[in-house]
């Protein structure tokens, strides 16, 4: 229904269009493992990157190739550079992995929900990551470590396929040497001179030191890993209301309009990607939902 008859047929919006990317320049590139790399980016048209929360993601555009959602893996307290870590496995990420310092790419975001790091204050924090799932959890680690005294025990459980696939290795080693952190790393298959734990990340949960009655868990990894991890966490006595997971789905718009990321009645892009486990559990146990 027409509400009025405007004279001019042009429309301007005061806010920037969330569908239009902003230009970012590559500052640094780094291969973290054989197939996983990090890009450090700086915005072309502003001094600071937009404020983001741990767990949020950006849509990253590679000229002429395409655009994909990638979680932000840098420190939310740092506004000068944007860090994305991803695996070179798809059309876009393969081209992205070949970008050099000073190359330009497009970024729009941040989008989505965040890890509830603030509401976890006073609790034991259990962070469980599988493979590249450590990337969206690293900003949460930074946030917790920046206010370490506000939390109880902080436990990081990390599982990788092989020792060569361990992400952010130097950082993990540094965290593991801290007296106020409990860091356990395990691999599916040991190679070379690996002397650490071998097995699934779920097997670490039984011996992790935390008080289940006063704990919050944040889990990210393949969906099957998150399913079994939450089962183990619940066995230890943490309620599904205090477990958070981050979901991955196909996304084209990131603003709840393209329909691709639906899981039941949820849009992973705007209702997630971080969900309270009790909210999504009935959906995650249904095949192909």
């Amino acid at each position: 229904m027409a509400t009025r008859l405007p004279e001019a047929a042009s429309v301007t919006f005061s806010h920037p269009d969330p569908m239009v990317p902003h230009l970012y320049r590559v500052l640094r590139t780094r291969w973290d493992t054989g197939d996983t790399f990090s890009l450090e980016l700086t915005p072309e048209q502003s001094a600071d990157i937009p404020q983001f929360e741990a767990g949020q993601f950006n849509m990253v555009y590679i000229y002429g190739v395409g655009e994909i959602p990638i979680s932000i893996s840098g420190d939310p307290a740092r506004r000068d550079t944007l860090i994305h870590t991803t695996r070179a496995v798809g059309t876009v990420t393969r081209v992205m992995s070949k970008l050099k310092v000073d190359d330009l790419l497009g970024v729009r975001g941040p989008f989505g929900s965040a890890w509830p790091v603030e509401t976890g204050r006073g609790k034991d924090m259990i962070i469980v990551a599988g493979g590249i799932g450590l990337a969206p959890l690293r900003p949460a680690m930074y946030r917790i470590l920046a206010h370490r005294e506000d939390y109880g025990r902080v436990v990081l459980l990390y599982g990788a396929r092989t020792p060569a696939d361990v992400l952010y290795r130097k950082e993990l080693e540094q965290w593991r040497s801290q007296f106020d952190l409990d860091v356990f790393v395990t691999v599916d298959r040991a190679t070379g001179n690996w002397r650490g734990s071998v097995g699934l990340v779920t097997q670490l949960i039984g011996r992790a030191p935390f008080d289940p009655m006063n704990a919050m868990a944040m889990v990210c990894g393949p969906e099957v890993m998150m399913r079994f991890t939450t089962m183990e966490l619940k066995k230890r006595g943490i309620s599904g209301d205090h477990i958070y997971v981050s979901l991955e789905r196909n996304m084209k718009c990131a603003i709840g309009l393209c329909g691709h990321c639906q899981v039941g009645s949820l849009f992973v892009c705007k209702d997630g990607p971080v969900f309270r486990h009790s909210r999504v559990e009935p959906l995650l146990t249904k095949w192909e939902i």
Partner: peptide, 9 residues
């Protein structure tokens, strides 16, 4: 209302 996007040069 579902849409996709395509990029080309």
């Amino acid at each position: 209302f579902c849409t996709t996007v395509e990029d080309y040069t």
